[in-house]
């Protein structure tokens, strides 16, 4: 059973930790949009900015690299396919595979953009607690019609809370079946059914107990909204980021 990646929020008092979560989400979206649209010079400026934030948070390089393992595979894949399939002047040739200069360049730039996105994500997650992120989502959903934002916030809580439990139950079922020789079965449909039916049963049983527990704790959709305070520092940093964004965009 694959291991669950830990949510690597690190409590701290840095500038980024103290920023209002709504500003952080806006910044994250802005940075993501920039990462995809910026020119080369813009990307350099943006990367510099992110590296500065990264250093300020003092995130361990080791955990970052560990988190980037999968990204690395994606990057190699994207770089490889782009270099091969983009039309242009051949640079190297291995048998029938032709690597073009243009391809290598466009692949490298796309990879760079992806790295920027990942970096921004890591910075956001390392400096923002789960409860805060949830509050932020709730606030952004509020003006949207037809979306019960308080319900969504509770659903996010429940999902994050119960994912480890579901994985644990899946692990138990898988081990119980291994011990009874389930692996000998050749029929894949049977294997999937034998594994999933008890898993779904247990999850829905958990859900039914959870409903009782929530009712007994007076669950109501008219809940208290999370509290967030917008400080002037938050606004100033937003303005700075927007100005920077425009500059990066036009570079």
């Amino acid at each position: 059973m694959a291991q669950l990646t830990v949510f690597e929020y690190r409590a701290g008092t840095s500038f980024l930790h103290q920023q209002d979560v709504r500003c952080k989400i806006t910044s994250l979206i802005l940075i993501n949009a920039l990462a995809f649209n910026a020119t080369h010079i813009g990307l350099i400026v943006l990367s510099g900015l992110l590296i500065l934030m990264f250093l300020q948070l003092r995130i361990s390089i080791l955990t970052t690299l560990r988190n980037l393992r999968l990204l690395f595979l994606i990057l190699v894949f994207v770089l490889g396919t782009r270099s091969i399939y983009t039309q242009g002047d051949p640079l190297f040739q291995f048998g029938f595979l032709v690597i073009t200069g243009q391809g290598l360049q466009s692949g490298a730039v796309y990879c760079w953009r992806l790295i920027t996105l990942f970096l921004a994500g890591i910075i956001f997650v390392s400096s923002t607690g789960i409860t805060e992120i949830k509050s932020g989502i709730q606030w952004f959903l509020k003006p949207l019609p037809g979306i019960p934002e308080r319900k969504v916030a509770v659903m996010i809580s429940l999902m994050v809370r119960f994912l480890p439990l579901v994985l644990q139950q899946a692990g138990e079922i898988s081990e119980a079946q291994k011990s009874r020789g389930a692996e000998i079965r050749k029929n894949p449909v049977k294997r999937l059914t034998l594994f999933s039916v008890p898993l779904f049963r247990r999850v829905f049983e958990t859900a039914d107990r959870l409903v009782l527990a929530m009712e007994s704790r007076c669950f109501s959709e008219n809940r208290t909204d999370p509290q967030m305070k917008l400080k002037s520092v938050d606004l100033i940093s937003m303005v700075i980021l927007f100005v920077l964004g425009i500059i990066i965009f036009t570079l």
Partner: peptide, 26 residues
Amino acid sequence: FQNADSQLVAETVAADVAFGPENLGL
């Protein structure tokens, strides 16, 4: 309840304790 695992609703200990009071709209 008998099963402790299926009555905790939130992502952190503090958020779980706050769940009831939030339902009361305090």
